[in-house]
């Protein structure tokens, strides 16, 4: 069987101070493997944006991360309010973040577009009232 490091994180809702902890842990693992810094940067950005999304919109969720020799698979699953129109949500600059969140400098409408931009595989499924699932893969050079 292919070797893989599996990491799981609980992302707490509405806790901005803790957002990024999962990303930090994943980065630290990738550095131990000697992954190219540019790939680490892509992972860090995609992962952080995903974490922040769950903090802002879904009252938290879980991150499941599988690190292989040649790629990383990140699954972000929440039981939040879901996304009504995914196409619209993927439009750069489109945001439904409340004003108080924007005042913190978040919610600029670049989260999902950035996650797509920095990953090699990006899938999103969402059901209103049930939650959202994001699947991302980044292939290492």
């Amino acid at each position: 069987m292919e070797q893989c490091v599996h990491l799981e994180f609980e992302v707490a809702g509405n806790n901005f101070a803790q957002a990024g902890l999962a990303s930090d842990q994943v980065k630290s693992t990738l550095k131990k493997l000697g992954i190219d810094p540019q790939d680490i940067r892509r992972v860090a950005i995609a992962m952080y944006e995903g974490e922040i999304n769950m903090v802002i919109h879904a009252n938290g969720g879980r991150a499941y991360v599988d690190i292989f020799v040649d790629k990383i698979c990140i699954n972000l699953i929440d039981q939040g309010k879901g996304i009504e129109n995914i196409e619209l949500a993927m439009t750069p600059g489109y945001s439904t973040a409340p004003d108080d969140v924007r005042a913190l400098g978040f919610g600029a409408g670049m989260g999902l577009p950035n996650m797509k931009k920095y990953t090699d595989v990006f899938n999103i499924e969402s059901e209103v009232g049930k939650g959202t699932k994001v699947e991302m893969e980044i292939h290492f050079r």
Partner: peptide
């Protein structure tokens, strides 16, 4: 400098990391 890197060979590093987990 690479103070974090476990091994020059990524496969070896991966095996060690899996073992550590």
């Amino acid at each position: 400098k690479n103070i974090d890197r476990i091994d020059e060979d990524r496969m070896t590093a991966m095996q060690r990391l899996v073992e550590a987990e």
